[in-house]
């Protein structure tokens, strides 16, 4: 989610550089073609047009507490990795939103594209650490499944936004 759209809007040079590099290497249409159908809701996950990641997950490099980490290519919000959680777990006491938006990010280690689910963690005060806003393949709010400019604490006890995780759903396939 983008609770701090404006407060976050402030990509540091490293992030911007990284994003541009990734953008240069990637074709927008190719990614959109791979993204395929609308992807909303954890309940729909079994229907996603992806091949599940293997048990070990993709090989990765980078710092999950940094906005230029490869999984965060379409994340807008606060990184849960800086707030007592991890890249796949909410911090203590926060409730994961079962509904998310989906990005497609390129993993530079294996040179493959992966579908990433950005789930907000909710029900606590905003963490306000490690703001991150990247917009690769992000679409306007009238296309919500692919929009990060939405507070994605839906289906939770409280809409209060805490932070965001980035979960690999699987390898993006055409």
């Amino acid at each position: 989610m983008n609770i701090t759209e404006r407060m976050l809007g402030w990509l540091d040079d490293t992030v911007a550089h990284s994003s541009r590099n990734l953008a240069r290497r990637s074709s927008r249409r190719r990614f959109l073609g791979r993204l395929g159908a609308v992807l909303v809701g954890a309940s729909t996950l079994p229907l996603l047009p992806v091949s599940r990641a293997n048990a070990e997950g993709p090989k990765e490099l980078g710092d999950p507490q940094s906005c230029d980490y490869w999984r965060y290519c379409a994340l807008g919000g606060t990184l849960c990795t800086c707030c007592g959680g991890s890249v796949t777990t909410c911090p203590p006491g926060a409730e994961p939103s079962p509904i998310s938006w989906i990005g497609t990010c390129h993993n530079p280690v294996d040179d493959k594209d992966y579908l990433i689910s950005y789930n907000d963690c909710c029900g606590k005060a905003t963490c306000n650490r490690c703001f991150c806003h990247r917009s690769e393949r992000d679409l306007p709010v009238y296309s919500p499944a692919k929009a990060n400019d939405i507070l994605w604490c839906f289906g939770t006890e409280s809409r209060s936004y805490h932070c965001t995780v980035a979960i690999v759903l699987g390898e993006a396939t055409t």
Partner: peptide
Amino acid sequence: ADGEFSHDSA
């Protein structure tokens, strides 16, 4: 002048 995916960039 950031190119693709810069619709949110300052």
